[in-house]
Design a protein around this nucleic acid. Structure first.
Length: 286
DNA sequence: CCAATTTGACCCCC
DNA sequence: GGGGGTCAAATTGG
C-alpha cells in the first residue's frame, strides 16, 4: 500500500518535471533556491529512494535469497517437456544499464546462467502475469563488468498485461519515430503506464517534439548516485531540418542513425551488454 | 499453504 | 557439440 502511494507520488513528480521542462522552466520562480524543475527532480529522487527502501524492507519479493545443494538427477523426474521458444533471435525492445531500480513491472525469476567469457551470471525474468494475462515480456539482467554496481537489463517482448506502453514521437518532418518503451522510469507495478506528458504537448514546436520526450525519458539523478544509460530501439529516424540547433552532441556509428548526430546526445552502444549494437542507440545521460 | 527462488536438466539454434 | 534460453522440482519463508 505504502509502495503504491509513493509510486503515485513519484509519477506525479515525473509529470510535474515533464511539464516544467516543456514550459519555461528557466524562468520559473525559484523555490528555496531551487528551480522548479530541479525541485521536481529532487522529489523524484526522494520517491525512488523511498521505493527502494520499501522494496528492501523484507516485505518485498526480492528479499528471498538462499543457497541450496543442487538436486541430483535421480531426485528429478525425467520428463519430456515441449518447449515454447520465447526469444529465439528476437531482439530486445529496450536495453538499459542501470543500478537496480525497479522498472515498474512485476518480474519473476525463472533462470540464471553463467555466460561464456562473462564474469557475472545472466538472470532471466518473465512477467509475473505471463500465465494470468498471457504477457510474454521477459527481461535479462547481467551485472556490468566495468562497473559491478551497474546492471545491464535487456527487455524482450511487449507487455500485454496492461502495465506497459509504447510511445510514438513525431519527428522533425512528420515521420513517426516509435520508441518502444514500457512504463519508463516508473517504480509502480500497479500504475497506469502512460508517460507524463499529454500527446498534445507534441504541438507546433517541432524542435521540442523530438527532444522533449527524450529529455523527459531520461531522468538522471544528479550527483551521480543514479547513473544510467538508456538504450531505446528507434524504428525510424529522421534528421531535423538544417538550421535547427540543439545543445546536445551525438556520435553514433550506426549508419541508420548518422542523421541524428548533431542534435542529441546520442552515443553508440559500443559495449553492449548483450552484444546488441546496431539496432540500438545509447542516450548518455548527464 | 502459497508464492518466489534456486539450479540442474532439457531443448533449440548455430 | 556447445552456448544460451527455458522449464520445473525442490526448497524456503511469510
Amino acid at each position: 500500500m505504502a509502495f503504491e502511494l509513493v509510486s503515485r507520488g513519484r509519477e506525479s513528480a515525473a509529470a510535474l518535471e515533464a511539464l516544467l521542462q516543456g514550459a519555461s522552466a528557466p524562468t520559473a520562480p525559484p523555490y528555496f533556491g531551487l528551480q522548479l524543475n530541479e525541485l521536481a527532480a529532487q522529489i523524484l529522487r526522494c520517491c525512488d529512494r523511498a521505493l527502494d527502501a520499501l522494496q528492501g524492507d523484507g516485505g518485498g519479493r526480492q528479499g528471498r535469497k538462499r543457497r541450496l545443494p543442487p538436486c541430483t538427477a535421480a531426485q528429478r523426474k525425467p520428463e519430456f517437456r515441449p518447449r515454447v521458444l520465447a526469444s529465439g533471435a528476437e531482439m530486445p525492445t529496450r536495453v538499459e544499464e542501470r543500478r537496480m531500480v525497479e522498472d515498474g513491472f512485476m518480474w519473476r525469476k525463472y533462470g540464471q546462467k553463467d555466460i561464456q567469457n562473462r564474469k557475472y551470471p545472466r538472470e532471466y525474468f518473465r512477467c509475473t502475469y505471463k500465465y494470468d494475462k498471457g504477457c510474454m515480456a521477459t527481461r535479462q539482467v547481467q551485472q556490468s563488468e566495468d562497473d559491478p554496481s551497474l546492471y545491464n537489463v535487456a527487455y524482450f517482448g511487449d507487455h500485454t498485461c496492461g502495465k506497459g506502453s509504447a510511445i510514438t514521437i513525431v519527428g522533425y518532418d512528420g515521420e513517426v519515430q516509435k520508441l518502444l518503451v514500457n512504463n519508463f522510469g516508473s517504480s509502480s507495478a500497479s500504475s497506469v503506464s502512460r508517460f507524463p506528458w499529454p500527446s498534445s504537448s507534441f504541438g507546433d514546436n517541432v524542435k521540442s517534439e523530438a527532444s522533449q520526450p527524450l529529455q523527459a525519458l531520461c531522468l538522471p539523478e544528479e550527483g551521480g548516485e543514479h547513473r544510467e544509460k538508456v538504450c531505446i530501439k528507434v524504428e525510424s529516424v529522421t534528421a531535423p531540418p538544417v538550421g535547427l540547433s540543439s545543445s546536445a552532441n551525438v556520435s553514433c556509428a550506426s549508419p541508420e542513425l548518422e542523421a541524428l548526430p548533431r542534435y542529441f546526445n546520442w552515443d553508440c552502444f559500443g559495449e553492449s551488454p548483450f552484444d546488441i549494437i546496431n539496432e540500438f542507440i545509447n542516450i548518455d545521460l548527464q
